[in-house]
């Protein structure tokens, strides 16, 4: 018997056309609209409630496991951290003084909004896309908390990605570790110990080594290992001063015209229980 009888072939072709239309159509909608269609939003919000219920026991178990494993290394950590705490208190006081001074100076200059003006909205991760090409987190805040598409998201020590979809009570965060073209184009700057800055954008993420790449750098400014990388606020959507990571090394590109900076990300993309969304004022 032939596998494709003429009727089967017709069904097969129709199914294929419908599938491709669905895929390309929904990608177009996702890229163009600020929010998904109302019915999709409604479905997402209802699913979000169930996801929260299912996530609760799993995250409790995870936290229990985590706290036990952390307990084993507590003593070692404690001795290391104690020395850091003293330094931190000093830095905190200094930061407070500088912040106040900054506020006063801004007022004098009549600068009402600068690139560093943002507030953070905290959110819990309720789910994660089980997929290898779309690393998305589902978080438990949405339009109700003032979240909008493309806002930057930080977790742990630094930047992790941006909002890719907003519903009423849930939102999706596309991680920086996705090497698709839309996920990780952030405007960043690196300031070296002499106080000089190199500006650029994140052009790539190396999955094998778990490193952020800032490519196409033509600046002659010398960068060292350990120089801090943060968002530059250029481009308007991302606020300035979100910590991204540290410089690991600078490599020459194959054509010799530009350099690439290899950056160690500040956050471990594998373990993100809570995130904060940066809302620009």
């Amino acid at each position: 018997m032939k596998f494709f009888s003429s009727r089967r072939l017709v069904y097969f072709i129709i199914a294929m056309i419908v599938t491709i239309a669905l895929l390309t159509g929904s990608v177009l909608v996702r890229n163009r609209r600020a929010t998904p269609p109302a019915i999709q939003q409604f479905g997402n919000d209802v699913a979000g409630i169930f996801a929260r219920v299912v996530d609760w026991p799993v995250s409790q178990a995870h936290q229990g496991y985590d706290s036990i494993s952390q307990l084993l290394s507590t003593y070692q950590e404690n001795t290391q951290l104690r020395s850091k705490v003293d330094k931190l208190a000093q830095a905190q006081v200094r930061a407070q003084v500088l912040e106040n001074e900054n506020k006063v100076l801004k007022k004098q200059l009549k600068l009402n909004s600068t690139l560093t003006n943002y507030s953070l909205v905290n959110a819990t991760v309720i789910s994660r896309t089980p997929s290898s090409w779309l690393s998305q987190l589902v978080i438990n805040v949405g339009q109700n908390a003032g979240i909008k598409k493309n806002m930057s998201v930080v977790a742990g020590k630094g930047l992790i990605g941006r909002i890719s979809e907003v519903n009423k009570t849930t939102a999706k965060v596309e991680l920086l570790s996705d090497d698709s073209e839309t996920a990780n184009r952030f405007a960043i700057q690196i300031t070296n110990s002499a106080g000089k800055s190199v500006y650029g954008i994140i052009t790539d993420f190396n999955r094998n080594t778990n490193r952020i790449i800032m490519g196409e750098v033509t600046s002659k400014i010398k960068l060292k290992k350990g120089d801090k990388v943060f968002t530059s606020g250029l481009g308007g959507i991302t606020p300035k001063g979100l910590y991204v990571g540290k410089v690991e090394r600078v490599t020459n590109s194959s054509n010799g015209l530009s350099k690439s900076v290899v950056i160690v990300p500040a956050t471990d993309f594998g373990n993100i229980p809570v995130v904060s969304v940066a809302i620009q004022k």
């Binding site: 699913a47 799993v58 309720i126 994660r128 896309t129 089980p130 778990n210 993309f269």
Partner: peptide
């Protein structure tokens, strides 16, 4: 079916440290 549907994501969110180790993506299905 629907319970397991959300369990997939919940497990992947909570165990991502192990499941995405060494640049691999081990997906619970």
């Amino acid at each position: 079916l629907f319970l397991l549907l959300f369990l997939d994501g919940a497990i992947y969110a909570n165990m991502a440290g192990i499941l995405t180790k060494n640049s691999s993506h081990t997906l619970p299905m």
